[in-house]
Design a protein around this nucleic acid. Structure first.
Length: 427
RNA sequence: GUGGGCGUAGCUCAGUUGGUUAGAGCGCCAGGUUGUGGUCCUGGAGGCCGCGGGUUCGACCCCCGUCGCUCACCCCA
């Protein structure tokens, strides 16, 4: 391949620029606000970790670890991986620093997976999520699941469904996997071509297969939810009852098996019915009571979820949610300077310091060009400063939403700008 | 990793059986308007027709390769 003359973003990545970035910013701000309200603090951890964090976290044999991770060696011959998901790094940080429990942390982060891109699937996507470490109280499963739903609701999503399952703890799960293995062995011939050979590596994956052949085989077989121990059952029931008590409907799906090995007990997924099947999972998570130990820490329960920003935006588009601004990014004022002395530099600095969102034109362009720029900026008011006004210590303030030349503008003393503007904006 | 569709201006796209200076709309810049935007009119800038090779007197057009985008399978957010 010859060196290209221009560059573009790497395969499967995308640039987020305005005006789409405003919606992005709104989604993140909405989540941050909600996380704060739920008692979570922000946690920022590195974009890459030692490879072992993910091998021991999400499981060496998971699809993501096997064929989707960006693994690299640094100049010191250390093996690292770009984070393919958000949970393992947070738990690594928890183990390393030992914050007081329950530790409730939220994050926003890119996630990297080497996949063939398609709608709603990227090599770099972005996730918002929360994790709680230090207690196995089912009330926290409920809280985490509720936070996710409140988030979707705040974004205006309606066609969102919660599906839930229990993976049991490691012992009931191991016993179940044995049963499932025996069942699959007895029915290998009936499995779909993709699972004929690989079913024994991770029998649980077959449950997730949508091919009719596999569905036929597994639906005749044992379901994990029927084999979990008494404590796991009790935990699960308390989660479902808790959700019910705050009006959150959950739908048991005994086939729900998520792709990371660290899950125990509660697992859940939010499905957007406005999206097509292959990309309709907009968020998911669950409990991981063994993960801290696997990463070398003391036994510590945990529960959390992650949601994909791109998926959430796809769902908003699919539901045709009004693109109302989640954050206000309207300029208050646009300064138009025709004095030839660059007084705009002084004025914008003054007004910005006074708290007004202010912009201006550059390059000493014509009045007409500056007015066009003001119009395009979406600013509420224009501040016109010409040589005569400036000499008289005055400026003209003009309402850009009005088309009435006489009514829309008036001259005021330069020193009164901040006060007048504040009054006008309050009207 | 497998398969389908598509690469022409900043954006959305035309481009005749292969024919010489490659077009439109939107956007951008300037003027019409001697300080006044959003409408209108006029003019202008902006293209290695993704890249490389081949066929041909001649290629945006046909063939091969390649890179990229996109959609789907798989898996996930």
């Amino acid at each position: 391949m010859s060196e290209p003359t221009t560059f573009q973003a790497p395969i499967g990545t995308h640039d987020v620029l305005g005006p789409a970035s405003a919606e992005w910013e709104g989604v993140v701000a909405t989540f941050a606000q909600l996380a704060y309200r739920f008692g979570f603090e922000l946690a920022v951890t590195p974009m890459f970790e030692e490879l072992g964090v993910f091998h021991r976290g999400i499981g060496e044999h998971s699809d993501v670890a096997r064929k989707e991770m960006y693994v690299f060696e640094d100049r010191g011959q250390r093996q690292y991986a770009l984070r393919p998901e958000g949970t393992a790094p947070i738990v690594r940080a928890f183990v390393q620093h030992g914050p007081a429990t329950p530790w409730k942390a939220w994050y926003v982060t890119p996630a990297f997976r080497y996949e063939r891109p398609q709608a709603g699937r990227y090599r770099q996507h972005h996730q918002l999520g929360v994790e709680v470490l230090g207690t196995d109280d089912p009330a926290l499963d409920v809280e985490v699941i509720a936070l996710a739903l409140r988030f979707y609701q705040a974004l205006g999503l309606v066609r969102v469904r919660l599906i839930i399952n229990s993976m049991g703890h490691d012992e009931c799960r191991a016993a179940y996997v044995e049963r499932l293995r025996r069942h699959l062995l007895a029915n290998v011939a009936g499995l779909c071509v993709d699972h004929q050979d690989v079913w024994h590596e991770n029998p649980l994956r077959v449950l997730d297969c949508k091919k009719p052949e596999c569905v036929a085989v597994t639906s005749a077989g044992p379901m994990l939810i029927d084999f979990i121990c008494e404590e796991c059952r009790e935990h699960f029931d308390r989660v479902v009852r808790g959700l019910d008590s705050i009006g959150i409907e959950s739908e048991l799906n005994p086939r729900l098996v998520r792709g990371f090995d660290y899950y125990t007990r509660t697992t859940f997924e939010y499905v957007a019915d406005s999206l097509v099947g292959s990309q309709n999972s907009i968020g998911g998570g669950g409990r991981y009571d063994k993960l801290a130990e696997q990463l070398g820490g003391r036994p510590t329960s945990g529960v959390g979820f992650g949601s994909g920003i791109e998926r959430v935006l796809l769902a908003r588009a699919a539901e045709e949610v009004e693109p109302r601004n989640l954050v206000n990014r309207t300029l208050d004022l646009f300064v138009i300077d025709t004095t030839g002395e660059d007084v705009a530099t002084v004025l914008v600095d003054e007004l910005r310091s006074a708290g007004f969102a202010t912009d201006r034109a550059y390059d000493r362009r014509s009045m007409k060009a500056q007015m066009k720029a003001a119009d395009r900026s979406g600013a509420r008011f224009a501040l016109l400063v010409g040589p005569q006004e400036w000499a008289a210590g005055e400026v003209t303030i003009r309402d850009l939403r009005s088309d009435d030349y006489e009514q829309a503008q008036r001259r005021i003393a330069r020193d009164d700008v901040a006060l007048s503007l504040a009054n006008l904006l309050n009207d």
